[in-house]
Amino acid sequence: MTIVRPYGDTTGDGMVQLSFTLPIPYDKRAEGAALQLAAKMGMDPAMLVHSRQMGDGFTFFVVYGRVRHLVDTEQVQVVERDFPLLSAKEVNAAIKRGLRRRLSVVGACIGTDAHTVGIDAILNLKGIAGEKGLESYREMAVLNMGSQVSVPELVEAAREARADAVLVSQVVTQRDAHLHNTRALSAAFREALPAGRRPLLIAGGPRFDELMAGELGVDRIFGRGTTPREVASYLVHAVVEGTR
């Protein structure tokens, strides 16, 4: 079955919940306005289950209702994992066998972004969700430059470390900072190094669209919930097996 509808408590009921704020005080008219929005969003019938005025001029609404839209799972485009997920042991063995040296990784938060939580989760020994970070892989040499690293500094460090891969993490998305920074990164590497010597460029962060790698000029984007093991497996796939 490729056509599905949202599921409330019965197959095919199409039920969804929605919450939003309108910049008007609470009254009967505000309730009507909320229902009008829900109707325009395709909810029919819509039930206004909660309204609450906040401050002078705002009201918060929760709406439950049935949507008429259908979704076709056949038409969904996603980046499916196109490489096998390896264990730490397999990663180390593959690097040893394939490269005969340690795989060099340089990571940083670039631009003004000070949120190292993403890059640290992937690189730090500590790792995330029970998986140790790349620093724990015997066959990887990891340099974590931390936060607010400038792009030229990162290029220089990558050159010095003969990086096979450069990982950048971007959390702050205000005014699309994560997109601007990533483009600046790929442009700088393209300018500084010829194609054959350019490290693999990987961007990660919770608000990236994984489909945007090409547009941003990087080799791969990892989104929310990525674990160190996935990144390590990808590195083996792309660097060691040379499939990029």
Binding site: F20, R52, M54, F60, V171, Q174
Partner: peptide, 12 residues
């Protein structure tokens, strides 16, 4: 937290 800068309703 970690999704958006807080909305008015989030704060409320």
């Amino acid at each position: 937290e970690a999704v958006v800068t807080p909305w008015l309703s989030d704060r409320d």
